[in-house]
Design a binder for these strands. Structure first.
Lengths: 249, 249
DNA sequence: CGTTAGATTGATCATATTCAATAGAAGTGG
DNA sequence: CCACTTCTATTGAATATGATCAATCTAACG
C-alpha cells in the first residue's frame, strides 16, 4: 500500500501527476507506529522531519497555565501534519497522538529537493498547509461565535466531511475515538458541559456519540446549528480549482 | 520607497538576498489606496492578486448567521495578506479594511514565475503564510482558554509586538484605531463587555486605550494575564532559524 | 470481580450577554 | 463658532450560559 494514498485525497489530489506521486512517495524515509496519548513534538524544539498521518487520530495543542490544554487542530488520516515545521523549522505548539497512530516520516532535506525541482508539487504541499490554515480560521469562528451546541456540532460535522473524503465515514456514521474531555479541549468547553451538550444533541435527534462512534441523524439540522458550510475544506469541486494542469502526466 | 520594505521585517527577512528583494519588488503590479471600512474580497470569489499591506489596518473575517462577525486575523503593515489565495485560488473568508489602507497588488501569474525559478524565495513566501497560520493557532488558544481580560490583553500584546518590528510601536505605545466593537469581534466578546474589560485593565494599571491609541503600562503583568509568549510570532532570534543561507547575496 | 477511566447528573457560582439608557467625541453644514 | 448628526463609549439591571465542585454510575479490562 502506498503511504501517500490519502494525502490531499478529495482536496486537490487530482492535480497531482503520477510522477509527482512517485516523488512524494520516495520522500518518505520510514513508517512508524506511535502509541496512543503520546507527545510527538514539543513546542519550540527544532524539527527535521514532517509527519504524514496514515491511520489514527492525532492533535496539535497548546497548554494553558491552569493545566488545561486547547486543541488547535485535529489530524486525521491523510494529513501532512507538521509540514508547517518545514518552512518554520520549529513549532509553536505540541503535537501528540490521541489514538495509536501510523505515520510516515519525511526528512526536510528531501523536501528541499522537491522545492528546487518541482514547483507544481511544491505548490500542492504549500496548499496542504493552507488547508490547515483554513481549518484554523473556521475553528476561530467556532470558538468566537458559536455556543456549546454549535461548537460540538461543528467539530463533528467537520470531522465527518474530512473522514468521508478519505473513505472513513459513510451515511453520517464514523469512528470518532475522542473522549468528551478531548472534545471539550477542542471546543473550549469543560468535559462536563460537553456531556450535557451531547445529551441535548441526542435528545433533539441530531446526532449521537457513544463508544467511540458518531452517528449523525439529521445532517441538515446539524449543519444549521453548527453554521457549517463545507467550502472551507476545499473539497474537490467540479472544475478543480488548482489552476494549470500538472506537468508530466 | 520600496513597497516590500516591511514584508517579513523582523520575521525572517534577513534571510532574503538583495536579488530576492528585487524580484519581489518587481512582482508588484501597482499600489492602491483603499478607503476605511471597505470589503476587498468576498468569501468564495476567485482571486487573481495577492495583497501586500503597506499602511493601515485590515482584517479577515467570517459572518455568523445572527449578523455578528468574527475576525479571524488582523492585518498590519508588512503583511502579505491574502497570499493564501495563491495556492487556494479562492478564499474561505472576507477581507476588508478597518482604516484607510495603502496596498500593493501582486498578480498570481508573477508568483508562478517565482515558484518556477526561485525556490528559496518561494520558501520565504510559504513561510509568511505559515506565520499567519501560527497566529491563527494562537487566536484559537485565546478564544478557547482565556477569559475576557486575557483575550483583550492578548490581542493588544500581539499587535504591539507585531507593530514594533515594523517600526510602528515603541515603549508600549502605538496607534490602534479599532473600535471596542472591532476588538469584540476579534475576541468573541460583545462591544459592551470589551468596554468593561478595558476599564478593568485601566483601573488595574495594565494598559489604557483611548482615541485610537494604546499605552501598555505594565508589560510583564500584561504578558501574564494574556498568557502571552511571543515565540509564535517567530520574531528574529539569534541564529536566525531559516536554515541555509540565501543564494545570490 | 475488583479496578479504573470515562460518562452522567445535580447544585451552586461566575462570567458574559442582553436590553436599555445616557454621555461624549468627531464631523458637517450653516 | 455653534447646532446638529452620528458614531462610539459608558453604565446599570436582569438574564443566560457555561464553569465548578462533588457524587455516582457504567463499561471495559485484567
Amino acid at each position: 500500500m502506498r503511504v501517500t494514498k490519502d494525502f490531499l485525497r478529495g482536496r486537490g489530489r487530482h492535480a497531482m501527476s503520477a510522477q509527482e506521486k512517485d516523488i512524494l512517495e520516495a520522500a518518505v524515509e520510514r513508517v512508524e507506529t506511535l502509541p496512543a496519548r503520546t507527545i510527538v513534538t514539543h513546542r519550540g524544539e527544532p524539527v527535521r522531519y514532517s509527519t504524514l498521518l496514515l491511520d489514527g487520530v492525532m492533535c496539535r495543542y497548546m497548554d494553558a497555565r491552569d493545566g488545561f490544554r486547547q486543541l488547535v487542530a485535529l489530524q486525521l488520516p491523510g494529513d501532512f501534519i507538521d509540514l508547517h515545521g518545514y518552512p518554520l523549522k520549529r513549532l509553536d505548539h505540541d503535537v501528540g497522538t490521541l489514538t495509536e497512530a501510523r505515520v510516515a516520516l519525511v526528512p526536510h532535506a528531501r523536501i528541499d529537493a522537491i522545492l528546487a525541482e518541482h514547483p507544481h508539487l511544491t505548490r500542492l504541499m504549500w496548499r496542504s498547509t493552507l488547508l490547515d490554515a483554513a481549518l484554523h480560521r473556521e475553528w476561530i469562528f467556532r470558538l468566537g461565535r458559536l455556543d456549546a451546541v454549535g461548537r460540538v456540532a461543528h467539530v463533528v460535522m467537520e470531522s465527518y466531511h474530512r473522514l468521508r473524503v478519505v473513505g472513513r465515514a459513510n451515511d453520517g456514521v464514523f469512528a470518532f475515538p475522542l473522549t468528551q474531555q478531548d472534545l471539550g479541549e477542542a471546543c473550549g468547553l469543560t468535559g462536563v458541559h460537553v456531556n450535557r451538550t451531547l445529551r441535548r444533541l441526542r435528545e433533539d435527534g441530531l446526532m449521537d456519540m457513544a463508544r467511540g462512534q458518531v452517528r449523525i441523524l439529521d445532517l441538515p439540522r446539524m449543519a444549521r446549528v453548527a453554521e457549517f458550510e463545507s467550502d472551507y475544506l476545499y473539497l474537490d469541486e467540479a472544475g478543480g480549482g488548482l489552476g494549470a494542469a500538472p506537468p508530466g502526466g
